[in-house]
Amino acid sequence: MKNRLLWPILALIALLLLNLVVTPSFFALRIQDGHLYGGLVDVLKNGAPTLLIAIGMTLVIATRGIDLSVGAVAAIAAAVTCVHIGTSPDVGTALAGMAIALVLCAVLGLWNGFLVAGLGIQPIIATLVLMTAGRGIAMLVTEGQIITVNNDAYRQVGAGFVVLPVSILISLAVLGLVALTTRKTALGMLIEAVGVNPEASRLAGVRSRTIIWTVYVFAAVCAGIAGLMISSNVSAADANSNGLWIEMDAILAVVIGGTSLAGGRYSLTGTLLGSLIIQTLTTTVYTIGVAAEVTLVFKAVVVITVCLIQSPKARAALSFRKVAVS
């Protein structure tokens, strides 16, 4: 386990050091009005939605699944909440809107779970349905408009501070909760069992379907919360751009963190590292003054490098050792 995380840790340290060289003030933290500011805080804040989605994605991937629809689900959550809030400045309206959105997300997760666990459709294609249709649904909700809101309660989710930005606290809380739940109960082991061998798990009496269903619902709810963060941060819902490609970032974070797309063993710590690497990378590219769009090139390079380092075949080829082909 420790070995698996070695490379992501090194990659993250290297990126952070690079930032230190380029921007000596990168690690500096300052407190202003009781709020913590600084380069590291920015990384965490901007990475919070991705981390949140990646946590859900980790569990989905552990069951041999994948959820491509999370970006669209995030957009739907943002759209529903903002349309519900409308011009109202009330706390109650904001809370109700968010509650409605998250319940809706849970339903969408149920739908994905139904396709995967109920009908037995390949996860990548089952969630492709909602990935395609979901954005259409979000646009249907907003009628193709960008919905701006002016609601202080809602703004707290993505832009608020309790010493640290609220979004960071939410993501870390969810991470902690998931880590605790999977480790202190048998959920983690059962998820891995289902991921490694679904049929054997079924015959051992594991409620595979329930578990698969649970992780998709959880992933969708995480996506919903992330969608709220994103839209709350700018006080607007844009069905076209909210959460666009965030599923890819989340999957990358999971894979960089050492969880195999083939399912089975997973690492939440790895996912945290993966998210941080991706976000730090984005920040780094920005701070060294390259066009933000070019981040994509760096992302590609990092992904391939980390994957190559983790691939047993690549390692064997590099060290010129003979591989046992079985």
Binding site: M189, E192, V196, N197, E199, A200, S201, L203, G264, R265
Partner: peptide, 9 residues
Amino acid sequence: KGEGLVADL
């Protein structure tokens, strides 16, 4: 292998 054990556990 297929229906019994969970090989990676």
